[in-house]
């Protein structure tokens, strides 16, 4: 009887431990946004300002800078986002002519929840 009691306590303790819930603490990730041209050509440089709105919390982050084609957003809170990118792109077309053009690129939904690789591709809309 005494042994049964001890076994019962042991089993219930195990149930308790097994049912314990761990926190989800992987809060941030890195996002890669690849900007592509709508026409043939090679991007020289992109000057961008990106605004990302977390769809679940409506929190917005912004980042600006220059890139050769991929925007890297570090310490990005994991979640679903809408993205708006605005800026200026300098590119060379197939005739070796250099163009400087304002652009926009946007997506209403992107998932940025993977812990390592969150890559998306957005096509630029040239505005000049």
């Amino acid at each position: 009887m005494r042994k049964s009691f001890i076994y019962l306590m042991y089993a219930l303790t195990l149930i308790c431990v097994a049912s314990c819930h761990d926190d989800y603490r992987d809060y941030t990730t890195t996002g890669h946004i690849l900007l592509t041209l709508p026409t043939d050509g090679e991007i020289e440089t992109i000057q961008y300002s990106v605004k990302m709105m977390n769809l679940n919390s409506r929190n917005t982050i912004t980042q600006a800078g220059k890139t050769g084609g991929t925007i890297i957003i570090e310490n990005l809170f994991r979640g679903a986002y809408s993205i708006n990118v605005e800026g200026v792109v300098r590119y060379v077309d197939n005739n070796a002519t250099t163009h400087t053009s304002q652009f926009r690129a946007q997506s209403d939904y992107v998932s940025m929840v993977e812990l390592n690789d969150n890559s998306i591709s957005l096509e630029m809309i040239l505005m000049d």
Binding site: N56, A80, V113
Partner: peptide, 10 residues
Amino acid sequence: RSSDQHLAGT
């Protein structure tokens, strides 16, 4: 006490 938010996709 802790609360998990479940993130919804599209």
